[in-house]
Nucleic acid binder design. Sequence first.
DNA 1: TATTTAAGTCAACATGGCTGACATAAATAC
DNA 2: GTATTTATGTCAGCCATGTTGACTTAAATA
Lengths: 164, 164
Amino acid sequence: MADINTGPNPLFLREDQLHQAMELLFYAYRDFTAECDAMLATYGFGRAHHRVIYFVGRYPNLSVSELLRILRITKQSLSRVLGELVAQGFVSSHPGPTDRRRRMLELTEKGRALESRLSTIQRSCIARAYREAGVEAVAGFRKVLLGILTGDDRKRFERSGAAG
Amino acid sequence: MADINTGPNPLFLREDQLHQAMELLFYAYRDFTAECDAMLATYGFGRAHHRVIYFVGRYPNLSVSELLRILRITKQSLSRVLGELVAQGFVSSHPGPTDRRRRMLELTEKGRALESRLSTIQRSCIARAYREAGVEAVAGFRKVLLGILTGDDRKRFERSGAAG
DNA sequence: TATTTAAGTCAACATGGCTGACATAAATAC
DNA sequence: GTATTTATGTCAGCCATGTTGACTTAAATA
């Protein structure tokens, strides 16, 4: 079997590159979440709480059903973590102005403080990688990740200008 | 530190771009794993089994402790899934030639078949994204992901030429 | 021979997914 | 105006996969 790296077999090289990409994604996700997980643990929270805090912070007045669609989990699963966050005053939940069945979710002051601490950790992680990799690398990074997305999320990103 | 964006408000844009990167990583990981999870379920396996199959396939004769270091889980956690895979004949485990305490893990024929099916799914996902994004984008993608890695894994990748 | 190392095992527990069934209130259709 | 659908919440239980702590065994090594 041919050499993995600098062989004269471009097809095999491609296979190996794809394999490496899969692995990189695993390692990157693992390392990207590790620090926040440790921080969250000091609050008695887990990664699931982080996701809720993140998306509610990013899209204020998100409804429960929209959050469910983003996270792709069941409402029973969400209910557990969201319930804790609301009960402990990190997230507020109010009836929507037009449709009063919908709950408008928002971060409270307390929630924003936690979100900020978590964001700082992850931003510094991404910022460091961006700085080291350079501008063109960043554009490529975003482009490839976008290509992996399958659903509506992709369109949302493309609209918001992330593809550039 | 070089500017990442060239806008009228580089600081704000940068913040937003970093936020978007975090979100992209979440969506990409979610979509990247979804199809395999469904396939694994038909075998009664989960994502944890996939990781073991993947790394044992990629690094034949891996020892248990090396696998633990890669996955960053406890041996008790690993033992559950690895035990199932060995018991059901997907992975073989033999004493090492020099140090007989070490177990050399390998995929069996059956294991390679499953690994192949899973790889096909993920490779096509990455391959599509690569194809759409282009060669330079791919190099940037790998470069940024590498920058996110914190431990030894990074060195291993750089040695193996993944930095492009 | 004593110690360390690699691996395995048992028990108990936490997190965060899942399904199914059911309740309530508000919007909407007929 | 009643019937239905929709958004949300809740209870109960199950499963996958992570954790800690304690202990065992066999092999390598000091």
